[in-house]
Computed example of a mutant assay.
Amino acid sequence: MVLLEWEIWDKDSGLSAIFLDKLRDMKPRVSPRLFLLSNSISSSGMSGATTDATGPSVIMKPLRASMLVASLQRVMGVENRISCSNGESPSLSLRNLLRGRKILVVDDNKVNLRVAEGALRKYGGDVVCTDSGEKAIALLRPLHDFDACFMDIQMPGMDGFEATKRI
């Protein structure tokens, strides 16, 4: 799952197309899904953002946990367990959303690591944290067992962009 600001995506359509081509060319075991975070978007911009299965989907800001959860469920193929029809409260259903999923969080800021780790564990994720792109590359060598990776794009040494290129 890749989250990008709409303004960055919309700034240069040529680079956006190249980025999408690179995602398609990677041919990973599971194709990454691209989500654009937007304050508002015109109907013409919206139609261009959701052209095919590998194209981006839009999540409106402010980013709410419920929207992120719904997006995660959709791309992970998890049924919507937010419904209370079985008598279970929504918060109990969400607590298991990421159960059995191993998630890598990469950020040089220790506070950001703790916040992300806490949020993902709250939903049942098995979270591994590291503080550099170099360490992320070592953990994401082929045949790794991570289901998702959240990586800061502005880190000293090797940022998220460089690390992603090397992976």
Rank of each mutant, 00 (worst) to 15 (best):
C84D: 15
Q73R: 15
E7I: 00
R101T: 10
S66D: 15
M60T: 12
S85R: 14
F35S: 01
N109F: 14
S57W: 07
A17P: 01
V106P: 04
G14M: 10
S13N: 01
I41M: 12
M76V: 08
L94R: 07
P56Q: 02
Q73H: 07
I18N: 03
L34R: 00
K22Q: 03
R64K: 15
L20N: 05
K102I: 07
S38H: 03
G14V: 08
V78S: 03
S43P: 10
I59Y: 13
M26C: 14
S83L: 09
R33W: 06
G77D: 10
D52G: 11
D12R: 00
A70V: 01
E88S: 08
S93A: 14
D21K: 06
R101V: 10
K102V: 08
I103C: 03
I18F: 05
R64C: 02
D25N: 12
D10M: 01
E88Q: 13
R99S: 12
S91T: 10
S93G: 15
F35H: 02
V106A: 11
G48A: 01
P56R: 04
N86C: 15
K61L: 10
S31G: 05
I18L: 12
E7C: 00
L94G: 05
S44R: 14
V69M: 11
S85Y: 09
S44E: 12
S91Q: 11
R99Y: 12
G100Y: 10
L20K: 12
P62S: 08
P32M: 09
Q73M: 14
S57L: 11
G55C: 13
G14P: 00
R33F: 02
P32K: 04
R81K: 12
Q73Y: 13
V106H: 06
A70H: 11
G14K: 11
M26P: 02
P90R: 11
R95Q: 15
N86M: 09
A53F: 15
R33M: 11
